[in-house]
Design a protein around this nucleic acid. Structure first.
Lengths: 132, 132
DNA sequence: AAGAAAGTTTACGTAAACGTCAAGTGGTTA
DNA sequence: TAACCACTTGACGTTTACGTAAACTTTCTT
């Protein structure tokens, strides 16, 4: 086990977030850095979780939704009696993400069509201008 | 041209939003329903835009980002001199969306792996229980 | 004509996700 | 030891995206 620990400043530099953000996530129980006296020290686990948090945010999930998802990635913590519930939540999220990707694919096609349109108009303007 | 018009109530039923939401979007200049006296009447154009707004929201875009994107879909309004700029903005957004989809695909794989793990644990518990 | 239904503006309230001071602690470098 | 970091805990401020309540007009229904 590499037990490298990170200060709040190092974390901020790496992940491009502010200290306020990390403390906020801790208050919301998304992260749980250990303490050395007053200071927070972030572990490998915190870093993995933060990656997932930021990823989740980019997809429009709320912090509360993310908090539930996070448990999936640290099953060691869970009681076996809650695994079934965890599994259910996971599948729901998976479905949502797949749906989201499909819709995103569609949106991309739409936008590409629009782009073609714009390019055609621009091309026509060019050839017209050349003809004069 | 089908010039079907819709009241605010009809729009709300169809798109599952509240009147407040539609008025808010109008205030933010995302929609521009015409008026019959006091009342708003929503056109085909508004409906198309609303679809795009709601889609954008699902992907975590802010209303302000969406407002910029929306112009891409109503090029008729634009001046030709601004088309090039529009084209540039469009490509930027397209790139972002494609990146987002790729990352989402990756996130889906990750989650699927985790699910397998959970399923394995659950299966083991079953076989163990059966053995006793 | 009376009331219910649907729509309107105005205005204040709210939850989420932080930003921004203020005031203090703990090491360390000049 | 003085000053300077990096870090800490409050506590209040801010933006986004609406919710909600009040007071009113217009339209439909009975």
């Amino acid at each position: 086990m590499t037990d490298t620990l990170y200060t709040i400043g190092q974390m901020c530099d790496e992940f491009e977030v502010t200290p306020r953000t990390l403390r906020f996530y801790e208050a919301k129980e998304l992260l749980s850095p250990i303490r050395e006296g007053q200071k927070r020290l972030f572990t490998k686990r915190d870093r993995a979780r933060l990656k997932l948090i930021l990823r989740g945010k980019r997809f429009g999930f709320s912090l509360e939704e993310i908090r539930q998802l996070l448990n999936l990635y640290h099953i060691g913590d869970q009681q076996v009696t809650q695994l079934a519930r965890t599994h259910e939540v996971a599948q729901k999220h998976l479905g949502a993400m797949i749906a989201k990707r499909d819709e995103l694919t569609l949106a991309i096609s739409d936008l590409q069509d629009q782009l073609k349109w714009v390019e055609d108009v621009l091309a026509n303007r060019q050839s017209k201008a050349a003809a004069e």
